[in-house]
């Protein structure tokens, strides 16, 4: 197996990087946090085919393509793109797998084309729906039932102002049956994987900007990047991110196999830890400027902290990895 990205996957990543650089995400993130849910970037991502990666071909998509999803989510994280992108991708998997023929036919083509913003919740796992006031559709998976839902009350205070979380309540039942929890499980794993990839992208961007800063910021007569203690922090951040990256791609490759949930959890736990350590290093190396709202990396730092515990905390995911070890399950090793 060739464990490198092919030309097409790299071109997808480069395209998104170009598009998002030009879009200028820092201003968009601030506007999104202020409640301005302009869809220009969302539509552009739809035209590029980001959402189609999670929608099957029979509903106008190209997926599910987990490796391409990881590539795309990495770039979306690198630019800290705002909005319920991962939620919409997960919703596609949920609608597709829930045996809800009507809603799937209605919503999946719109999702694929970037014409629908979807958020979701799931009691116990995702108690609050992200950006629910900006969503065209909110899904709520509860046991064997899939509901549409509406926001209930104002947004709760969140760590990351650009991630606005709402309590929701169910309004209409869309599907019932054993397919719903199965689809919800797949949707959860795909979302956790996309979230892990986003974290790696966020970490990469934070490391890049911090290395640049360490080269120019001078103290005691030389750039602070020349001090070994600073170098070591940066090197640790890099190795953390680099060790987590293959876990994300590895998990993408095991999509559809019984190992997928375990591999996703390994990736999500490692990516959360690596991105969070990088964010803390970025904050420390930047000194006081890192704490200012006006300085763009603060948007990335707060998003890392939020995504670290979104779609399962590192502890949740470690527990899933542990539970998948045969000896722990009381089986003989494979």
């Amino acid at each position: 197996m060739r464990f490198v990205l092919d030309t097409e996957q790299r071109l997808l990543g480069d395209t998104l990087h170009g598009l998002l650089t030009k879009a200028g995400t820092p201003a968009l993130i601030r506007r999104w946090a202020a409640g301005d849910h302009d869809r220009t970037l969302w539509s552009a991502l739809g035209e590029t085919g980001v959402f189609a990666l999670a929608v099957p071909e029979r509903h106008g998509g190209a997926g599910p393509l987990p490796v391409e999803l990881v590539v795309a989510a990495h770039e979306l994280g690198r630019h800290a793109a705002p909005g319920p992108i991962v939620e919409t991708l997960a919703a596609a998997a949920l609608l597709d797998g829930s045996a809800a023929a009507g809603p799937a036919a209605e919503w999946l083509p719109r999702i694929a084309a970037g014409q629908a913003v979807v958020s979701l919740g799931s009691p116990g796992r995702i108690r609050r729906a992200l950006d629910a006031d900006a969503a065209d559709l909110i899904l709520l998976a509860d046991g064997e039932h899939l509901f549409s839902a509406v926001p209930e009350g104002p947004a709760v205070r969140a760590l990351d102002p650009a991630r606005r979380l709402f309590p929701v309540r169910q309004v209409e039942r869309l599907a019932t049956g054993p397919a719903v929890p199965r689809a919800a499980a797949t949707a959860y794993d795909l979302a956790a994987l996309a979230c892990a990839a986003q974290l790696l992208g966020l970490g990469r961007a934070l490391l890049d900007v911090t290395v640049k800063y360490a080269r120019t910021r001078r103290q005691f007569g030389r750039p602070i990047g020349e001090f070994q203690a600073v170098k070591h922090h940066l090197a640790n951040a890099l190795t953390g991110l680099e060790f987590a990256r293959p876990l994300a791609y590895g998990a993408a490759l095991s999509f559809g196999s019984p190992d997928f949930p375990r591999d996703v959890s390994a990736a999500k736990a490692a990516a959360s830890d690596a991105a969070y350590a990088t964010a803390r290093t970025a904050l420390q190396v930047h000194g006081a400027i890192g704490y200012t709202d006006e300085y763009d990396p603060s948007l990335w730092i707060r998003k890392v902290r939020a995504l670290r515990s979104a779609w399962g905390t590192p502890a949740d995911h470690r527990a899933r990895v542990l539970a998948a070890v045969p000896e722990v399950r009381g089986e003989s090793p494979r």
Partner: peptide
């Protein structure tokens, strides 16, 4: 324009 994913795959 930016290439779309479909465009990227079609180019192959």
């Amino acid at each position: 324009r930016y290439p779309s994913f479909k465009g990227i795959m079609a180019a192959k």
